[in-house]
Write a protein that binds this DNA or RNA. Structure first.
Lengths: 344, 344
DNA sequence: TTGTAAGCGTTATCAT
DNA sequence: ATGATAACGCTTACAA
């Protein structure tokens, strides 16, 4: 099956009785090749299972056919989903994926990323949230003329450099869901306000609520750290006061899981006494007891679009017009939210 | 800060007033360089922030400084943990990581992996379970002379090609734990018996139990598919019979979570009426209610060791002797297991 | 200890 | 439409 000695462009040229340059033309789909010549070359390529060497190609053409994936996300499930979607696109277009987790809070973070890019020679990078929110990084990449695409939750860049999940709208959907269930005493555990996306969700949520006549009191807006532990902290505060909310929306499923834990310990029944809504549709959102009503971001779609955009940019074909930029999350209703039983 | 035009080995040579060859020697740590010459060159390198081009280096030396990570594991958390550990080692040694999820059940799987390796030009591959159990793949890699290291749960290969988590011993520990708690009616939900590791765990468990005078009846040994859903299936069977076990060990945390769900629906209290033990220490093992007693594999350690072995093999320095091969999982006791209240 | 020159497998320039 | 020939940035015989 597998040919033993590596077959090169020279072999193909010799076999097809043409020059190396012509074979190169065929490989790269140049139109300047005669019909029969092309056929002969293509056959030789197929017959000998020839695959152009990426290193050599890269050296000569200044292109590595490597894409970088830059992230600093504690959510492994999210990363994995993205990776698979990206690789799907890559596989078809002959690219490989090099991963680079980083620490966006450390101050050498920009340099770290730039070093990664130059060391690994990636042709472009995909940037996941929350790193994708870094204005500084985007700027640095632009200056260094490294192609990049950010996956983010708000309109932070030119369309060719970003794909967005519209979380404002998503927040409105959650508010609607809660109102429809009759909840009037609603609390929210927000994400760290240093993140743009967290602010976006907080504003989106409160604003939508206000527009619909639902006011959320100050003490029911708590800032969590997006971790399970911080979810527990905040839930304890919310559930130990005089006045209990009848529903809590958490900025992510991790924290929502924390609420479940506290409610359990406090013997508060979910969803009978308290509705909980999360965000992400983490793998365990469906496994937790009770299972979690949550917002699902169409992660694979975002990743797919982003990759397509990036590769187009790299190949600088007719710029990435035609590739969507915005996708919308949607609500998954499960056990943790139900009709409000409270009679005010 | 960042130099604009790319600085090459020629620039450094010119600046240091030596030949390119000598610079190359310094880059590659050859001892055959004069003290002062080396100093001069090193300074030039540092001053101009020179980094040898990986592509060119690869082309000339037949080495890409790329490592491949091959896996087909539904457990994203595991993958992520491995990736981070691997990258830690890579970063220090100047390698990058290219990821390749695959489908080990499809029959072109071997070819798919070989194609990946030749297309991406990786210098070697790390293989995660369950793919790491494939004898065929290992053989193919050996024949093609591709360096590889497998991460597995049993002694399937030469020490330089594998790192192992000793699961036989781990099983014994679980049996001890259960016996210590007074359980005599113990059931197990095994993994798919097509996997070596599943068989290993099944045998390890039953054998250790038998040795300690605990017999596990046939009908309490159920084969699951390692998924949450299959955990539910099996748990339903186990918990709807006449005779109920007082403890269930599941081959992984996913399935253990399934048991929790079924027990909840059947109003069986955990751990009062039923103890549950999982395997993996998945992220949500600690988040689920009740939290899960489980076996933790020292994933990062395994990954670190594997990467070190692989890179040594690639650089064919004094073969990987001195790098450990076996590490041991350890039990994490949480809420889901407790003293058996049953009076036989 | 250092240098010269010949590749590595492609793409790019410029002819023809 | 096709082909010499020179890059690309580095390593490696082979000299000196």
């Amino acid at each position: 099956m597998a040919t033993k000695t590596k077959v090169t462009i020279n072999d193909i040229a010799r076999i097809a009785g043409v020059s190396k340059r012509t074979v190169s033309r065929v490989i790269n789909g140049s139109p300047l090749v005669g019909e029969s010549t092309r056929a002969r070359i293509e056959q030789a390529i197929a017959e000998h299972n020839f695959q152009p060497d990426k290193q050599a190609r890269g050296l000569a053409s200044k292109r590595s056919y490597l894409l970088g994936l830059v992230y600093d996300n504690p959510d492994a499930l999210y990363i994995d989903q993205v990776q698979r979607a990206v690789l799907d696109v890559c596989a078809n277009l002959g690219f490989e994926l090099v991963v680079h987790p980083c620490h966006w809070s450390e101050d050498n973070f920009i340099d770290d990323c730039l070093t990664f890019i130059s060391r690994s020679n990636v042709d472009g990078v995909l940037i996941l949230p929350p790193v994708s929110e870094s204005k500084t990084l985007a700027q640095a990449l632009r200056e260094a003329e490294h192609p990049y695409v950010r996956i983010a939750s708000a309109d932070l860049d030119d369309p060719q450099n970003i794909v967005i999940s519209n979380e404002r709208e998503a927040m409105a959907d959650i508010v609607d869901h809660l109102l429809k269930l009759g909840h009037r005493d609603v609390a929210m555990i927000t994400g760290p306000q240093e993140f743009f996306s967290s602010r976006e969700r907080l504003e989106g949520f409160t604003e939508s609520a206000r527009n619909k006549g639902l006011n959320i009191p100050e003490q029911w807006l708590l800032e969590g750290g997006n971790s399970y532990e911080s979810g527990i902290e905040c839930a304890k505060q919310l559930l130990s006061g005089e006045q209990l909310p009848s529903a809590i929306f958490a900025n992510n499923d991790e924290m929502a899981a924390g609420i479940l834990r506290v409610a359990n310990d406090l013997n508060i029944k979910i969803p009978e006494q308290l509705s909980v809504v999360g965000f992400d549709d983490n793998l365990f959102a469906s496994r937790v007891i009770p299972s979690l009503t949550t917002m699902r971001r169409p992660v694979d779609k975002l990743a797919t679009l982003a990759t397509q955009k990036l590769i187009r940019a790299i190949q600088s074909e007719a710029s990435s017009t035609g590739i969507e930029t915005v996708v919308k999350p949607y609500l998954i209703e499960r056990e943790s939210s139900a009709q409000c039983k409270r009679t005010t």
